[in-house]
């Protein structure tokens, strides 16, 4: 297992370098000079441009530029946001936990819900439930996440007044202890639900197919021969085995969730990196944009790595 982990980590490094290269290449195609690509159209003084040129060796050949781009990243230096007078690294570090809280909780709730619903739809004898859930999944796929967010706000926040419409916490509040927590929770619920619907739909679909596939395997017949009941068979032979392809797909769906965070955070004014990305694009603050794209790409690669390890934990055949 240790060997497996080491190998996968080693494989992730060239992946990381090439994704950064891709980002770098896309920047090269930007109209205007390279400084323009880095700072965007935000009005910055000439001195700042000059210091960037020196720091990233923007007058040197492209490969040297890539090298310094990497060197700066490796030092945790993602540039300086002139728009907010803060280093990009600290800007992102400030926002990242918020996104992880929101996307993470939505992701987990969605996975759990989707797993349970998928398992039930695949094993139930009630056609009605299966059809209902399948229809729900199709509908969820067709509804844009941000529109669902708007609908939830209009219904539960504006019309019913159960939850706040936006933000992450009240501007001024002196609640403490459990009330503090509940207050935060009330802000989290709607955006989290929005995430959960999509993740849930995806996982439901994957789980259903995978469980049906597993139920067709020979070892299920063996389990029945041994006298295990339906439920015992599901518990002991279906859940783990059918989770394998679902787990494999979680890496991809994490990427989708990161993409979705841009939209959902915008609907709910949730101060995470998604909102930061949109704001930075509007302010033409490219330093932040580049930093964010790099961070998101790294996050996806790390997530894929974790998913691979989870897969290896679940499936003894690939631990080698």
């Amino acid at each position: 297992m240790l060997w497996f982990v080491a190998r996968r980590v080693a494989q992730a490094v060239p992946m990381l370098l090439s994704v950064i290269l891709l980002i770098f290449v896309l920047m090269q195609f930007t109209p205007g000079d390279p400084v323009q690509a880095m700072v965007g159209q935000y009005p910055v003084p000439q001195s700042f441009r000059d210091s960037l040129t020196a720091e990233y060796h923007l007058n040197a050949p492209v490969w040297t530029q890539y090298w310094y781009f990497l060197v700066n990243l490796a030092h945790g230096n993602m540039g300086y946001s002139y728009a907010s007078h803060e280093s990009v690294t600290s800007l992102i570090a400030e926002r990242l936990p918020n996104t992880l809280l929101l996307a993470g909780s939505g992701y987990i709730v969605g996975i759990v819900l989707g797993g349970v619903v998928g398992l039930i739809t695949a094993t139930t004898k009630r056609r009605g439930f299966d059809t209902l859930m399948q229809t729900g999944v199709v509908t969820a796929y067709a509804i844009p996440s941000f529109w669902l967010g708007q609908l939830l706000v209009m219904l539960f926040a504006v019309h019913l007044g159960w939850f706040p419409t936006q933000g992450m916490a009240p501007v001024d509040s002196n609640a403490t202890g459990i009330y503090w927590f509940l207050e935060r929770l009330s802000y989290l619920i709607l955006p989290m639900l929005t995430y959960a619907v999509y993740e849930g739909a995806r996982v439901t679909r994957l789980t259903r197919v995978s469980v049906i596939d597993t139920l067709n395997q020979g070892y299920i017949v063996t389990a029945r021969m041994k006298g295990l009941s339906r439920w015992q068979t599901v518990r002991s032979h279906v859940i783990r085995n059918s989770s394998l392809p679902v787990v494999t797909a979680l890496g991809y769906s994490f990427a989708v969730a990161m993409g979705g965070s841009v939209l959902i955070e915008t609907v709910f004014s949730w101060p995470g990196i998604g909102l930061l990305l949109v704001d930075s694009i509007k302010q033409r603050d490219n330093q932040v944009v580049i930093g964010l794209v790099v961070v998101i790409a790294v996050a996806v690669i790390v997530m894929n790595l974790l998913v691979d390890m989870a897969h290896a934990l679940l499936d003894p055949r690939i631990r080698a």
Binding site: L26, M27, G40, V262, L263, S280, V289, A297
Partner: peptide, 15 residues
Amino acid sequence: IIPLMVLALFVVALW
């Protein structure tokens, strides 16, 4: 690897 939406945004930001 770069999420679809983020990639589209990146291109919009640059171009």
